[in-house]
């Protein structure tokens, strides 16, 4: 019974996200749409807190969870209320980065649960015996996308706040490609190979993802930041969807994919409104510095 009520909660959550997003795209209904989505979020969170069961077991550590929720709510409300109107974009970027960090931390904890406690069992055997390859793939995807989004958003925040300036160096594209290739290769090795030290490889991937997030945003000009934030926003959406896959959780899946696709389209529309192409924004750092002097 509780789990069927929880499913209904998630269903309500998904529908409010869709309707809320729709209302947000019309000036008259935008504000109500925002609160509708927020209401759906509250229902989903409360439902998870009180109705979630895994193998018939309740969640525990309620004290920790409640503490986290209270601290997050108080700090979040205060930060959002006190920020100056002109500083809004960097605030959005920072909150987006927090979502990415959340996805990353979930991936780290889930991975640690998979590590064999018995030294005689290898990581590959654990995956084999429990058929977890796809599960690890979802963990890695959440980790990498979340990590890029977190590091990128923090850099974007710093740029808009005037703390970090644009930086270019020769061969940047080559370095970016090398980092991406390394992430992909290590991920494949972790799943398909038989690594002696899976944790070491996992944390190298974590570090490289963060590093890539920095590399990705640091050459992009300050004026193009809103477009980049929108793109990182859709990244976090995709990371959320992978989280939904991990826990077989419908509201995370629909919410994440919805933001992922809507965010991508929104990014393209923002580029058009600024008379820039997305290629220009992401790869045109060289021409941007050239025209800037």
């Amino acid at each position: 019974m509780p789990s069927s009520i929880l499913s209904v909660c998630y269903l309500i959550g998904s529908v409010t996200f869709i309707v809320g997003l729709k209302m947000l795209s019309h000036p008259e209904t935008a504000r109500r749409g925002n609160w509708l989505a927020a209401a759906g979020m509250v229902i989903s969170i409360l439902g998870t807190l009180f109705l979630y069961r895994h193998d018939g077991e309740h969640l525990h550590n309620y004290g920790w969870i409640a503490g986290g929720l209270v601290i997050g709510s108080v700090v979040g409300t205060m930060a959002a209320r006190q920020v100056k109107m002109t500083a809004m974009p960097q605030m959005v970027s920072l909150f987006n980065g927090m979502g990415g960090l959340c996805a990353m931390l979930i991936a780290v904890i889930e991975f640690n649960r998979l590590l064999p406690e018995d030294a005689s069992v290898t990581f590959a055997q654990v995956l084999e015996s429990r058929q977890l390859s796809l599960y690890v793939l979802a963990i890695l995807a959440g980790l990498v996308i979340g990590g890029v989004s977190f590091a990128g958003s923090v850099i974007a925040f710093g740029k808009l706040d005037g703390k970090i300036s644009d930086r270019n160096f020769a061969g940047q594209q080559v370095v970016n490609m090398a980092v991406i290739t390394a992430i992909a290769a290590l991920s494949v090795y972790l799943i398909c190979g038989d690594p002696r030290q899976p944790a070491l490889i996992f944390y190298t991937v974590t570090f490289l993802s963060l590093f890539y997030g920095v590399l990705f945003v640091i050459p992009i000009g300050g004026a193009d930041m809103p477009v980049v934030i929108s793109l990182l926003n859709s990244f976090t959406g995709v990371a959320t969807a992978f989280g939904g896959f991990l826990y077989d959780n419908q509201v995370m899946l629909t919410g994440g994919i919805l933001v992922g696709s809507a965010g991508t389209i929104l990014t393209i529309m923002m580029c058009k409104a600024m008379n820039r192409s997305i290629r220009n924004v992401l790869l045109g750092s060289f021409s941007a510095t050239a025209s800037g002097g």
């Binding site: 959550g13 996200f17 809320g20 997003l21 947000l24 795209s25 019309h26 000036p27 935008a30 749409g33 925002n34 989505a37 927020a38 979020m41 989903s44 969170i45 998870t48 807190l49 979630y52 895994h54 969640l59 969870i65 986290g68 809004m88 974009p89 959005v92 909150f95 987006n96 979502g99 959340c102 931390l105 979930i106 904890i109 889930e110 809103p226 934030i229 929108s230 926003n233 859709s234 976090t236 959406g237 990371a239 959320t240 989280g243 939904g244 991990l246 826990y247 959780n249 509201v251 995370m252 919410g255 994440g256 919805l258 933001v259 809507a262 965010g263 929104l266 529309m269 923002m270 409104a273």
Partner: peptide
Amino acid sequence: LHTPLMSGANAIHGVIIIGAIIV
């Protein structure tokens, strides 16, 4: 409405919190 919509979508992917609560 581009910026508010981006911000609204940003709040919606915060549904990742459910994963954090479960973990």
